[in-house]
Amino acid sequence: MELLREAVDEVAERTGFSGVVRLDRQGRTEFSVAYGFADRAHGIPNSPETLFATASGSKSFTALAVMALVERGTLDLATPARSLLGPDLPLVADDVTIELLLAHRSGIRDYLDEDALGDVSEYVMPVPVHELATTEQFLRVLGGCDAVFPADERFAYNNGGYVLLALLAERASGVGFHELVRSLVCEPAGMVDTSFLRSDELPGRAARGYLAVDGLRTNVLHLPVLGNGDGGIYSTAADLTAFWDAFFAGRIVSPERVAQMVQPRSVWAEGSRRYGLGFHLGATSDRVWLEGHDAGVSFVSQHLPSSSTTYTVVSNWSEGAWPVVDLLG
């Protein structure tokens, strides 16, 4: 294990990694180490207790909040999106269901098509980011969700589909999306340091997200001011370890629902991974992981149930995590 820690140190130093790397095996923390700065301008270093944005990693929390509502009978996997939308988003087809949205098989057009993006540090939001603080405010960017292929025809990763899930969860339950994630996911998982934070009023423990390996420019003008169903929750490496323990122990949703969520539904086009309901899955192994990549954020938290091994790599600059992730496999 010491050799692996040394290898992580070498990669971190060579690539300018900024963030935290943590490895747990069979209930024991092998190492949890921080590099770089949470706030470069003020020289505040990252620490294992630093709060980091996770970008799309929080899609799994959206999926779990929705699945918890399914267990309570508030929603059903077969619930059509149209049944809760009323006159809103008229281009969403009648056969788009909760399950297809969870599986990225809805066929709706994405408001933020990652395949069409160039550099993640470009300014890509179609409305001013400070106007995206509530789920209902995202209706402005979801309006073009017409079908690009028939529902359930194939897999296509879709950010807008997960904001739509947040909207449907709010309307079905009468509870705000951020509160649903807190009460249905974070609390039962014991994730005491995990929450959605506004980028324009970050607390002292939160890392600023940087657009390059050096420099002071942050991502505050690039992303919604408050994350929503498709990403943006802040967490710590310790909380993410707690998440995996709680998820597979059935403390967030039942073991039967856990099995549903990690059952492969699709294979990514490149064939290197599969996808369930809200979770990335290994192509052949039992690997399950969360992944996020955005302006100022790069993140992976992976769990292998067969060996009770979890690693988390979270970085507060756009490309920071990937060399360390490649090392850890």
Rank of each mutant, 00 (worst) to 15 (best):
A283T: 06
P305E: 13
S254K: 00
V262F: 04
L216Y: 12
S266P: 00
G229F: 02
A212G: 11
P255G: 05
Y275I: 11
A283K: 03
A269G: 06
G271P: 07
N219I: 00
E291W: 02
L281G: 15
L221W: 06
D286P: 00
A295S: 13
G271K: 02
S306M: 13
G271A: 07
G231P: 04
D214E: 13
L226H: 02
L211A: 05
A249K: 06
E291H: 07
R217W: 03
Y275L: 10
S285K: 04
L281P: 15
T218E: 12
H280V: 04
L211N: 01
F247C: 08
A283F: 06
I233K: 02
L226V: 09
I252F: 01
H280Q: 12
G292M: 03
D230P: 03
V297S: 13
R257V: 15
H293S: 04
A259T: 11
G215P: 01
L281M: 10
F247P: 15
W268F: 09
T218H: 06
L221D: 14
H293N: 03
L304F: 12
F279Q: 05
V262T: 11
T284K: 06
G292D: 03
G227T: 11
H280A: 15
V300P: 05
D230F: 15
S308H: 09
P224Q: 02
R251T: 14
I252K: 00
Q263Y: 05
L290E: 14
A283D: 13
S235M: 04
W244M: 14
H222Q: 07
L223M: 04
T236Y: 08
A242R: 15
G250L: 00
H293V: 01
G250C: 02
V300D: 10
V297L: 10
R265I: 11
L221H: 10
L304W: 14
F247M: 11
Y234M: 12
T309I: 08
R251K: 12
E270I: 06
A269Y: 08
F248I: 08
H303I: 05
G292R: 03
A237H: 04
H293Y: 03
W244N: 15
D239K: 07
V300E: 14
G278D: 08
D239M: 03
A249D: 15
V297M: 05
V300W: 09
W268L: 12
A295N: 01
G227A: 11
V213M: 04
F279M: 07
A269Q: 13
S235C: 12
G227C: 00
P264C: 03
A237T: 11
L240I: 01
F248L: 11
G229H: 01
W244A: 14
L226D: 07
F248G: 10
A238V: 15
P255K: 04
G229D: 02
R265K: 06
F243M: 09
R274W: 06
G215C: 00
G227S: 08
Y275K: 05
S298R: 00
V213E: 10
L240V: 05
V300I: 12
W268I: 14
H303K: 11
V213S: 13
A212V: 13
L226W: 01
T241L: 06
R217V: 14
I252Y: 03
E291Q: 04
V253N: 00
G276S: 08
G276M: 05
V253A: 00
D294T: 08
T309R: 05
D245T: 15
Q302R: 15
P305F: 09
L281D: 14
T309S: 11
D230I: 15
A246E: 09
L221F: 02
D239I: 05
S235Y: 05
R274Q: 15
